[in-house]
Amino acid sequence: MFKIMYKKELSPGIFHMDIEAPRVAKKAKAGQFIVLRVDEKGERIPLTIADFDVEKGTITLIFQVLGASTMQLSALNEGDSIVDFAGPLGQPSEINGNMGTVVCIGGGIGVAPVYPIARAMHEAGNKVISIMGAKTKDILIFEDKMRAISDEVIIATDDGSYGVKGFVTTALQQLVDRGEKIDQVTAIGPGIMMKSVCDATRPLGIKTIVSLNPIMVDGTGMCGGCRVQVGDEMKFACVDGPEFDGHLVDFNNLMSRGRMFREQEAKAKEHVCNIGLGR
């Protein structure tokens, strides 16, 4: 069993949880993910590691209530436990001290997995400019954390309630327009956001890394459900990724595959509500 040590609702439907998993915390690196199961009948869901604390032996997860499993997870409290927690999975981000200027883009809840990557890049001595995107000011997360490890933070909200009005690509364009020399972009967020970022950086020739979170079952290479087309090759996000060269990723297929279980997901959510496991 894996105990929930801390829980906070960051904004409506978005939760921060620290899970006690000392062995995972000891090995976790920026860019990796875990797979968890809430209870004995639960499904295995992958979540990207938002932070890790070796001393406390905890892994931080940030998740948005979308389906049945995240709803069930959100209903648990500090001191409760979940049955399974496996990781760290996937390849860590490639980070070194000679990356130059990196723009780290997080859209929505994607800010959470970008955070440890941006921090590691910053600690390695690179210049980190962070772009944080959200629909509206109230659901922006991790602002203080991102400010603490970035040389500069730009915020973009769809409705203009905070920072630049527009998308993360609007903010990125501003950086380009002011003549910022960008060596790499790392973007994590919804498929459509990552696609837009890649479409913007491709003509500029800026190396762009994206982190994918497709549907998967085991997370160790066994099911092949997380396969993505990257250039001419079929890759498994769980063992080959989750990070890939965004300019080579077939985002349309990725987004289409993300909808494969949509009908079932709705049914599962309804079931969880009916039997009172949700909130």
């Binding site: 009948k41 639960g42 499904e43 295995r44 049945a68 499993s69 069930q72 079952v217 494969m260 279980f261 009908e263 079932q264 997901e265 049914k267 599962a268 309804e270 079931h271 969880v272």
Partner: peptide, 10 residues
């Protein structure tokens, strides 16, 4: 045994 077990299959 979906949805009693949460993993779906299409």
């Amino acid at each position: 045994d979906f949805p009693n077990h949460a993993t779906p299959i299409v």
